[in-house]
Amino acid sequence: MKSDTPLLDVRDLSIRVAGVKPLLVDGISFALDPGQTLCIVGESGCGKSLTSLALMGLLQTPPLSITGGTARFAGRDLLTMTRQELGHVRGDRMAMIFQEPMSSLNPALKIGEQIAEAVRRHKGVGRDAARARALQMLERVRIPAAARRLDAYPHELSGGMRQRVMIAMALANDPELLIADEPTTALDVTIQAQILDLMRELQAETGAAMILITHDLGVVAEMADQVAVMYAGRIVEKGPVAQIFDDPQHPYTIGLMSSMPSLGARADRLVTIPGVVPQAADMPAGCRFASRCPFRSGICDTVPPLSSVGNGHDVACFHAPLEQAPRPKAVSA
């Protein structure tokens, strides 16, 4: 059900940091259709948050810089917009939710005012209309006693309630694209479930597309239509969510899944990924996962292209499918 032009079309996005030669985000591409959810999954330092910040024009430049690529949103390239143009789009047609709501809410401003401010800025409505919208949004994210909470300050709310306020603010202008960076990571598991359910419901109501950034494969399985697995600045595997979970191809994806303790009957030792992600400056020239990969061979010294294995499923590994991979025999690294 792909429409002809995706809502967001990111191509070859690259980001580097001053003084380090290997790119922090190295030529990643993905597209997102209206109403769809793309989960970008990966561990610390894989570049998933940098990617979302770049799309929102929130990268700290310098030391970071975008060295290439395009990100067409509804036909226009976000990466070449002026600050002013971006200011019109951001918070209106696209909005962002962060992990820690306390750091993105203004502690000195009542939450009703903060939401109303976002509405007035973009919709040019009056004070009363904006406040009415703020109330409506708080009700929509099911904050109890919403009318009273309009006048609450962020510190008076619990973590889950603050995240609801963030969502209310992000959705106040009916954005077409919502970028959520680890929106539930700081929350307890029952509160996380509430917030995920809420996000899913609101998305179904509004038809917004969503990029959900997470490290939690459980959240991915629950929320995603499409998945992109990132490792050390590159997308190593992407495809429809069922493909990723039921037919994982990249050794990193498989290693990540097997590192997760199962919720089923108690298993043996966890099968882990050895070592740690290389530091940006020491990134290998070829496949960036090679140093930790049990399937590596000589060919891995070149960069594996992201190529299709069918069913809209792409993987960046020379050895996929692994059934046909050469048996590693005391490989010299």
């Binding site: 598991v189 029952t190 996380q192 479930a193 995920l196 939690d216 494969l217 459980g218 959240v219 991915v220 399985a221 629950e222 969510v241 069922a242 979970f245 039921d246 899944m257 997760m260 919720l263």
Partner: peptide, 9 residues
């Protein structure tokens, strides 16, 4: 019931 499970569906 609240745990997100890493299995589609």
């Amino acid at each position: 019931a609240a745990i997100p499970i890493a299995r589609v569906g």
